[in-house]
Computed example of a mutant assay.
Amino acid sequence: MFELETYLAGVHRPLVMGIVNATGDSFSEGSASSPETALDRALRLLDEGADLLDIGGESTRPGSAVIPPAEEIGRVVPLVRELRRVRPSAVLSIDTRKSEVAAAALEYRVEIINDVAMLRYDPRLAEVTAAGGAALVLSHSRGTPQTMRDPVWCDYGDDVAGSVVAELKEAARVAIAAGVPENNLLYDPGFGFAKRPEQDWELLKRVDELHELGPVLAGLSRKSMLGWLLGQPDPAERLAGTVAASLFLADRSVEIIRVHDVRQVCDALKVREKLLS
């Protein structure tokens, strides 16, 4: 069984989770996220300093379509299998909403299941994760990729952070009831998922409030909230914003930062660590 608490013990800086999209239509990488090139990209991110990898076979960007579990498995499991062969010590997370995909990946001893749907899409995901002895990321979201931008899902009253914490707390209750140990849960505020940019920024300022639940994983790499602020419609042009926001997350003691640009974020964190030593 993977013990998240042990894995995070003694860490004095955020761990960097490298994003490996094997979807072919990533919001930030487009066709460059092809499954055929995913292994090369995964190895490069590990060489650049990624502490762990998050592998996804289904895009959940706004407007994306659901793909069958078998197709998603065909994208991620061969990659996991090959990484286990060439980098057996790599810590691997699978970004999926589907219990069938999680079960197939857990056959290869992946350590983390990252559910962007917060157990709303497939409640069996928690049971499968528990049976596989993996940690579970609960990422806040509402609606579906097709509907998450609808105003009804973006209504948090005057307290977006409080609402996010409350809804994650309820998801944690479901996960624990399904057998996932409380100390094997991670919490992601879900930047960009059913939130307007100004809500994302308010949530970022208050991200440390999620620590009342447990350890926090945050992914805002190249996201639209950065493009909205910086006037950068192209996600690939949001590197500077990603680095700045990652340093802010580090200052708020976020345990894991999920990014595309691993080398640049690792360099920034090394400089920060040196200055604070």
Score class of each variant (00 low, 15 high):
114 N>F: 08
39 L>E: 08
229 L>M: 13
245 A>R: 03
210 L>I: 11
254 V>F: 08
245 A>S: 15
71 E>K: 08
95 D>I: 03
269 L>P: 02
107 E>T: 05
198 E>R: 14
41 R>P: 02
93 S>E: 05
272 R>Q: 08
241 G>C: 10
175 A>C: 07
232 Q>D: 13
201 W>G: 03
74 G>H: 08
121 Y>D: 13
8 L>F: 08
102 A>D: 06
68 P>I: 14
221 S>M: 01
144 T>P: 02
128 V>C: 09
173 R>N: 09
223 K>N: 00
214 G>E: 07
260 H>V: 00
63 G>F: 07
33 S>M: 04
124 R>H: 12
224 S>P: 03
242 T>W: 01
32 A>Y: 13
167 E>L: 08
16 V>C: 06
112 I>N: 00
156 Y>H: 08
73 I>S: 00
2 F>Q: 08
118 M>E: 12
79 L>E: 00
7 Y>C: 01
58 E>I: 05
147 T>Q: 09
139 S>D: 12
221 S>G: 11
274 K>F: 11
78 P>V: 05
125 L>E: 04
240 A>Y: 15
217 L>Q: 06
76 V>M: 09
270 K>M: 12
11 V>N: 11
165 V>E: 01
231 G>Q: 12
268 A>K: 08
143 G>E: 11
60 T>H: 06
171 A>V: 07
188 D>L: 09
214 G>Y: 13
41 R>E: 10
28 S>V: 03
148 M>S: 08
70 A>N: 10
267 D>T: 13
191 F>I: 06
126 A>H: 02
157 G>P: 10
254 V>G: 04
123 P>G: 11
253 S>R: 14
164 V>G: 07
239 L>R: 04
112 I>K: 02
29 E>T: 12
267 D>N: 13
25 D>W: 05
213 L>P: 00
274 K>Q: 13
127 E>A: 14
2 F>A: 11
7 Y>P: 00
75 R>D: 09
200 D>W: 00
91 V>T: 12
252 R>D: 11
112 I>P: 00
43 L>K: 06
91 V>C: 07
5 E>L: 13
272 R>M: 15
78 P>M: 08
170 E>L: 14
113 I>W: 02
66 V>F: 10
231 G>E: 07
31 S>L: 13
172 A>K: 04
212 E>G: 08
85 R>L: 11
252 R>G: 07
224 S>A: 12
249 L>K: 04
262 V>N: 00
30 G>S: 09
247 L>M: 06
137 V>L: 05
262 V>Y: 01
67 I>A: 07
104 A>D: 04
1 M>Y: 14
87 R>G: 01
96 T>C: 06
34 S>Q: 14
56 G>Q: 03
13 R>M: 12
182 E>F: 10
85 R>Q: 14
69 P>D: 07
223 K>V: 04
20 V>A: 01
183 N>R: 15
35 P>T: 09
161 A>C: 15
164 V>H: 05
132 G>N: 07
257 I>T: 01
222 R>K: 09
128 V>T: 11
50 A>T: 05
62 P>M: 10
137 V>F: 03
258 R>N: 01
266 C>F: 03
160 V>S: 01
